[in-house]
Structure formats: structure tokens, C-alpha cells
């Protein structure tokens, strides 16, 4: 998509890229430190320099590759779904923050250290480059600008980022919301499904609610009392139910439209569509309550 330079859309995409880059930034400095800690002093300085260089280079190459891959039909949809999952994982509370760093083992040689750093950065950066690729709308200039602004912040200003998110944790939630919006935009931009969305306009809205219901579920869960937390599962389930009717309408060539039913069959279909989820929801809540009671009984002895 061509974007006018220095327009609101341009700056919005740039801001989204920087925000995604910050909230999904990997802890490169710590990985480099952990990998280089057992090396001789003269090699440590070289490992820090080349490790940082390698991490930046692999990030740039991966981002450009993602922009290219997203042009392949189907990958935009897959990327959008993956971003929704990434947003969900980003917002899920972590009880053992920092424990994952133990995975970075110290290296015995210079080449081994660089290899470990580059592989660690590639693994840590997959979600990041996917988000950036989606937010950039295919513009290489935006990606280069976003990386030029955010990479120095992440590499040399990690303490600044930590201080920012520590003072304002809402930055993470905003990042999650931006990821969800980017995921939604990627799903509806997928060339394979664009004609289908043009015919089923209400499906777009259902997808939007579904995406936000899944991505922001940890937020709702943290805010709702224990007995109402089942509703967090119920909302996406209802959206999937409604979406299934839209899909069925195109597969079986039946008319499922708001208040346009004329025959008995269409009235029945409308009835099942709008009321059929109620018994399912009641069943789901009953099963959940039963399993909770059973678990409580088992825990009690």
C-alpha cells in the first residue's frame, strides 16, 4: 500500500512500529552479557560489538523478509492470527519474570558466542518483525525508519525502556491493543478473503470483536471477579458461533441476513443463529462450574 510521506497515516504507522518494537523487544543486552561472561576479557569486548552488530543485522534482514513473505497469499491471514496470539501472550501476567534468561548458556569461543547471540535474537525477534511487517503496510521506508529509531533505544537504552514500562504499565496494554488492531487489519487485508469480506460486511465487525476479545482476555480476566471469569471465554465463543453462520451462508449458498428472512427455513436459521448460542453458553458455564467444584473437592482431599 502506497502511503503519503509525512501524512497522519505515515506517522501513525511509524508510531505503531516503534511501540511494537519497544513492547516486543528482546533482551539482547542480557543475552550478550550471559553468553560472553565466561570468555577471556579481550574477547568479551569483541563479542559485545559483533554480537550487537549481528543482532541488528539479523533483525533488519528478518524484517525485510517478512515484508516480502506477507505478499504471498495466505501469509497475511496467518500473520494476523499469530499477532492476536502474540498480543494475548504479551498481556498474560508472568509470575516468574526473568526466569527465561537462564536459557542463554555461556559460550566457549568467539564464533560460538556470536552464533548463540544471532540465533537467540532471531528466535526472540520473530514476533517483533511480524508485528512491524504488518504495521508497515509493505512500506520499506517505514520499516527502516522504525528500526533506525527503535534499535538504538533497545540496544543502548534498555534501562530507559524498563523504567518507562515500570512507571507506565499501560504502555504494554496499549502495545497489546495496537498488536490486536494490526492483526485485525492483516486478517481483513488478506487477498484470499477480501472478496468474501466485501460480500459479508458484518463478518468484519465480528472478526474485530473476536480479535479484541481474545487478545485482551488477560486484561478482562484480571478485572472480573472469579465467578464471572467464564464470560471471558463466552464472548469469543459467541463471535465464532455468529461467524460460523456467515461462513455456512457462503458454503451452502443460503441467505443469512439481518431481518431479511422470508421463508420458514430462513426464519428457523435466523432463530438458531440469534438464540442457538444460549444453550451452548449455558452448557459451557455448567461444565465449567462442575469442573471447578470437582477440582476443589479433589484439592480438599
Amino acid at each position: 500500500m502506497e502511503m503519503e510521506l509525512f501524512s497522519a497515516a505515515f506517522f501513525s504507522a511509524l508510531f505503531a512500529i516503534i511501540l511494537i518494537d519497544l513492547v516486543l523487544a528482546g533482551d539482547n543486552a542480557l543475552v550478550i552479557g550471559l553468553v560472553a561472561r565466561n570468555l577471556p576479557k579481550h574477547l568479551q569486548r569483541k563479542v559485545i560489538f559483533w554480537g550487537t552488530f549481528g543482532a541488528i543485522a539479523i533483525r533488519v534482514v528478518m524484517t525485510l523478509m517478512v515484508v516480502w513473505i506477507l505478499k504471498v497469499p495466505g501469509f497475511m491471514l496467518a500473520g494476523g492470527i499469530a499477532l492476536v496470539w502474540i498480543a494475548y501472550k504479551l498481556l498474560s501476567p508472568q509470575s516468574d519474570a526473568g526466569a527465561a534468561h537462564a536459557a542463554a548458556a555461556p559460550a566457549a569461543s568467539f564464533a560460538g558466542a556470536i552464533r548463540t547471540i544471532v540465533i537467540a535474537d532471531a528466535v526472540m525477534g520473530i514476533d517483533n518483525v511480524l508485528g512491524i511487517g504488518g504495521a508497515a503496510h509493505g512500506s520499506v521506508l517505514l520499516i527502516v525508519l522504525g528500526l533506525a529509531i527503535s534499535v538504538p533505544i533497545v540496544v543502548w537504552g534498555s534501562q530507559l525502556v524498563i523504567k518507562l514500562v515500570d512507571r507506565y504499565p499501560s504502555v504494554i496494554l496499549l502495545g497489546g491493543a495496537v498488536l490486536a488492531w494490526t492483526g485485525y487489519s492483516m486478517i481483513v487485508r488478506e487477498p484470499l478473503v477480501t472478496p468474501w469480506f466485501a460480500e459479508h460486511t458484518s463478518a468484519k465487525l465480528l472478526i474485530a470483536v473476536l480479535v479484541f476479545a481474545i487478545a485482551l482476555a488477560p486484561w478482562f480476566t484480571a478485572r472480573l471477579p472469579a465467578q464471572l471469569q467464564a464470560l471471558v471465554v463466552l464472548l469469543p465463543a459467541v463471535m465464532v458461533w455468529m461467524l460460523a453462520f456467515e461462513v455456512a451462508a457462503s458454503v451452502w449458498q443460503v441467505r443469512v441476513d439481518y431481518l431479511l428472512a422470508t421463508t420458514t427455513g430462513e426464519y428457523l436459521l435466523e432463530g438458531v443463529r440469534w438464540l442457538g448460542w444460549l444453550p451452548l453458553a449455558a452448557g459451557l458455564l455448567w461444565l465449567r462450574e462442575r469442573s471447578t467444584r470437582r477440582n476443589r473437592r479433589l484439592a480438599g482431599g
Binding site: P93, A104, I162
Partner: peptide
């Protein structure tokens, strides 16, 4: 290995926001 996970407050962002931020 996210950078933001080094902050305990940010790791539990959904529970540590002020009502205004929320």
C-alpha cells in the same frame, strides 16, 4: 526473554495500571 519482563510491574501490567491509564 522480552525486555519488558525484567520489570515486575510491567510483567503484570494488567494488574498494575492506574484507573486513569486503564
Amino acid at each position: 526473554m522480552l525486555l519488558i519482563r525484567r520489570s515486575a510491574r510491567a510483567a503484570n501490567a494488567v494488574r498494575n495500571m492506574s484507573p486513569g491509564e486503564e
